[in-house]
Design a protein around this nucleic acid. Structure first.
Length: 204
DNA sequence: AAAGAGTCCAACCGCGACCAG
DNA sequence: CCTGGTCGCGGTTGGACTCTT
């Protein structure tokens, strides 16, 4: 839950130079209930566009960026709160394997989740999990006999060789950016997921 | 009970992309 | 082309909260 401050707590203020000569001071730090209400009401009427104008016209002493972030990560409708399910976690892992740190793309495939949330979840949970797994693997490899090690290396080499061929093929048949182009798609349409999972299974 | 360490997450920052003039 | 304004993204920070000693 976002820390909604008591109005009485003094907000940090940062002076910025506007394009005019006057100095404008903007609030920084946690949002108050009153600020949330103003922002939500304004967006309900005018829509979430031109954030700088929103910040000014909604009577918020905030920069446009801050308004956008607050809307996207907290006030927007359909935001899912609470723990990430096992299914969602699995999906994040698979998508991260494919896309790397492209959080907004990953978030786009998890309805109701924000890029910030997924990024935080990755940094606090999943990156640790992966490190642990890698350490375990390392220990197992060290414990093995010389012949076991040799066999393992041969296996890895064979797999890399196959992957090379696969990736050369996939250059033609599979483009990640095309695959994740949702411009013509309902965000809650989950057909993509079964396609993606099929692709992922095939690669393993 | 208190203090220090660790964790989590909202919010900020800097940068690059895009677009209009 | 160039410039300035705006937006969106990923990395990082800071403070609140929880756990451990």
């Amino acid at each position: 839950m976002a820390p909604i401050k008591d109005e009485s707590i003094k907000t940090k203020v940062k002076p910025i130079e506007s394009y005019m000569t006057t100095k404008i001071e903007v609030n920084k730090g946690a949002w108050t209930i009153e600020e949330d209400r103003k922002l939500a009401e304004f967006i309900e009427i005018h829509g979430p566009k031109r954030w700088k104008t929103i910040a000014a016209k909604a009577g918020l002493n905030r920069c446009g960026k801050s308004c956008r972030l607050r809307w996207m990560n907290y006030l927007r409708p359909n935001i899912k709160r609470g723990n990430i399910s096992d299914q969602e976690e699995d999906l994040i892992l698979r998508l991260h394997k494919l896309l790397g740190n492209r959080w907004s793309l990953i978030a786009g495939r998890l309805p109701g989740r924000t890029d910030n949330e997924i990024k935080n979840y990755w940094n606090s949970h999943l990156s640790k999990k992966i490190n642990q797994k890698e350490k375990q693997r390392e220990v197992l490899t060290r414990k093995g006999s010389k012949t076991q090690k040799r066999r393992l290396i041969e296996k890895v080499e064979l797999r890399e060789e196959n992957n090379k061929e696969d990736s050369e093929d996939s250059k033609i048949s599979f483009n990640v950016d095309d695959f994740f182009d949702f411009s013509n798609e309902n965000p809650f349409n989950l057909e993509w997921m079964s396609n993606f999972l099929e692709q992922d299974e095939a690669n393993n």
